[in-house]
Amino acid sequence: MTDTVAARPVDPFDAHALNAAQGLDPVDPAFRHVLRISALFNMLPIAIGATLLDMFVVREMDGPYGLLSVLAWLLALLAITAFPARRAQRWGFKIGEGQLRVARGWLFRTDTIVPFVRVQHIDVGQGPIERWFGLSHLVVHTSGTHNSTVTLPGLRADLAAAMREEIRRHIQTDFA
């Protein structure tokens, strides 16, 4: 955290270097599969819809038949194969020193710190795709209106539970 990131720009295509430079731990590698499958569920209907539009509308109008389909499927392919791994690598977190730090994104990177004593309550959630890979996500609620929930996905279920216990202990000691 103390080393100046700006002085030596980190290679934007090496996400591990980014997290390391900022003193963050990466999320579980299996998280990229979760992202990939949810991208699949999101992109497939869009690509199919674009193809149908192409077949039934563009062809009728003597438009550039095929262009839309090819573009949609290319985009879907990229979103499913290339992006999830990169997106997963750009999530980073650090727990300790009485605070939780969560960072995400590259183009628009947000690095959030929540002190444990400020946490109102904690959720550990698990969706069906996450359950498949044994992952959970941790949601931390604060009383602020901005950032009242901070979500950290891609944690092994046991790690998420351990983190919840750790944070809960702090909440208890603060209010006791």
Partner: peptide, 25 residues
Amino acid sequence: QSIDLKTDFILRPLGLATLVFGVPG
């Protein structure tokens, strides 16, 4: 209650960041 440190593709090359504070109410 919480602090966001945000950078993006415009701020980062300039070595800048935006701080956003989470405040109750």
